[in-house]
Design a protein around this nucleic acid. Sequence first.
DNA 1: TATTACATGTCGACC
DNA 2: GGTCGACGTGTAATA
Lengths: 224, 224
Amino acid sequence: MRLLIARCSVTYAGRLTATLPPAVRLVMVKADGCVAVHADGGAYKPLNWMNAPNTLTEEHGDDDVLRWRVENPQGETLEIAIEEIRYDWSEPLGEDPGLSKDGVEAHLQELLADHPDAVEDGLELVRREYPTDIGPVDLLCRASDGAAVAVEIKRRGELPAVEQLARYVERLERDPLLRPVRGVLVAQRIKPQARTLAEDRGLAWIEVDYDLLRGIDSGELRLF
Amino acid sequence: MRLLIARCSVTYAGRLTATLPPAVRLVMVKADGCVAVHADGGAYKPLNWMNAPNTLTEEHGDDDVLRWRVENPQGETLEIAIEEIRYDWSEPLGEDPGLSKDGVEAHLQELLADHPDAVEDGLELVRREYPTDIGPVDLLCRASDGAAVAVEIKRRGELPAVEQLARYVERLERDPLLRPVRGVLVAQRIKPQARTLAEDRGLAWIEVDYDLLRGIDSGELRLF
DNA sequence: TATTACATGTCGACC
DNA sequence: GGTCGACGTGTAATA
């Protein structure tokens, strides 16, 4: 990794054009060749950057300005004109053992598979990941009135989730053994627009509380 | 900005749980208090981070380990256990004059609002951001034959854009004052799949040249 | 504050 | 190599 604190101006030309006037910034070059220009604020996103793979060429201008030109295979370019270097540090850090994540996402589906009645009273699970030719439905259930219910589970309920569920229900409706099929979108939070579209498509929606569900689940486990 | 090259292990607990085993990494602390932990590769995204606003507390463990605890108002925490500092640099960079961008969707919409006939001959703008209950249509226009035309503008035309436009047209069709309503997807580049789906839904599509449009726009301005 | 839609989104999984 | 969906998405604009 190389860390350069320098007064520089930057231009990116590619999917859009973005320019930075001269100022003191951090230029970070990682071992994989990616380059990022950071200001002293504004979250972790750099002002300008170029991801690997790319090629970096350096040239000295006659005006004491060092010019870096970073280009990627798509022809996008990042040009950094370095007027003054304040600090320059470089050393390999070595491989990183990597990040391990423990997500909330998969757990939510497990919990609801165990407690389908949290979605609708009397609902019983038929199968998780019920296959259709456009992909698996998260949960296929049977309601107390005998109707099939397709449940789509998301952490956040947005428009694409409604479309996805609508497609599933449409497919499942073609199966005479399942028909009629209702659809329910379940999420921790469902956006107003998604609610509107769901209702419009004849789909139900419900927000569930993850912590509450987990509490119910662990409470029941304690009974055994 | 503070740059720390250190052997450290990191834990984030918040929307999910993520842990990093000990390794040498860059810890970047910006003037606004945001913290990012970078490996020597993997694009510009840090392995772990905590955005501003947050509070950083430092404590010395009895085992020669320096412990940073970063917490934000939502109660999410980032904990960094620093075992060994290899390099520690700190200095304010000052305010950044900021980034100027050209070529984002907003610009494209402005240009097309000024020149709807670039989409279709004789098209006239009725209103930008025409509201519907599932979101605003980028441009609502009137064609020379009197039909309403909903224009959806994207930098890149992909499947979701077609579906979005289809939803808008479906909504607008319900308004007897607008009916019949045609839909046009406008983008700098439209993927073949999106073209096919658009045609399938009875929607038109057109690719526009941003630089050309800008040229037309500045050319017309010169007339006044 | 909350809601929305864009982003040089990035990133991984799967085909 | 593409397509798709998730993301601790972040971010700015808007109501």
